[in-house]
Computed example of a mutant assay.
Amino acid sequence: MTESGDVDLLGALAYAELTAFLRMAEDASQLAPNLTDRAELGSLAVAEYGHFVLLRDRLAELGADPESAMAPFAEAFDSWHELTKPGDWLQALVKAYVGLGIALDFYREAARHLEPSIAPLVEEVLADQERSEFVVDRVRAALADDPTQAGRLALWARRLVGEGLSQAQQVAASRPQLAQLLADADQADIARLFAQLTEEHGKRMAALGI
Score class of each variant (00 low, 15 high):
residue 180 Q to N: 09
residue 182 L to K: 04
residue 138 R to Q: 11
residue 148 T to I: 07
residue 145 D to K: 14
residue 117 S to G: 10
residue 72 P to F: 04
residue 193 L to F: 14
residue 145 D to F: 08
residue 182 L to G: 08
residue 90 L to F: 08
residue 57 D to E: 15
residue 151 G to V: 12
residue 93 L to G: 07
residue 112 R to L: 13
residue 133 E to N: 09
residue 169 Q to W: 08
residue 194 F to K: 05
residue 11 G to V: 06
residue 209 G to I: 01
residue 114 L to P: 02
residue 83 L to P: 00
residue 22 L to P: 07
residue 38 R to W: 01
residue 65 D to N: 13
residue 145 D to W: 06
residue 138 R to L: 05
residue 20 A to F: 12
residue 52 F to L: 15
residue 45 A to H: 03
residue 94 V to C: 03
residue 177 Q to P: 09
residue 86 P to M: 05
residue 36 T to D: 06
residue 89 W to C: 09
residue 40 E to M: 05
residue 174 S to G: 09
residue 118 I to D: 05
residue 107 Y to E: 12
residue 56 R to C: 14
residue 78 D to K: 06
residue 7 V to L: 13
residue 202 G to H: 10
residue 143 L to P: 04
residue 174 S to H: 07
residue 123 E to A: 10
residue 119 A to V: 02
residue 38 R to A: 06
residue 147 P to C: 01
residue 207 A to C: 00
residue 51 H to D: 07
residue 54 L to F: 10
residue 148 T to M: 10
residue 200 E to V: 13
residue 149 Q to E: 12
residue 53 V to Q: 15
residue 127 A to G: 06
residue 132 S to F: 03
residue 118 I to T: 06
residue 148 T to E: 15
residue 31 L to W: 01
residue 179 A to D: 14
residue 33 P to V: 04
residue 106 F to G: 09
residue 14 A to P: 11
residue 172 A to G: 03
residue 4 S to V: 08
residue 69 A to I: 08
residue 7 V to S: 08
residue 123 E to Q: 04
residue 20 A to V: 05
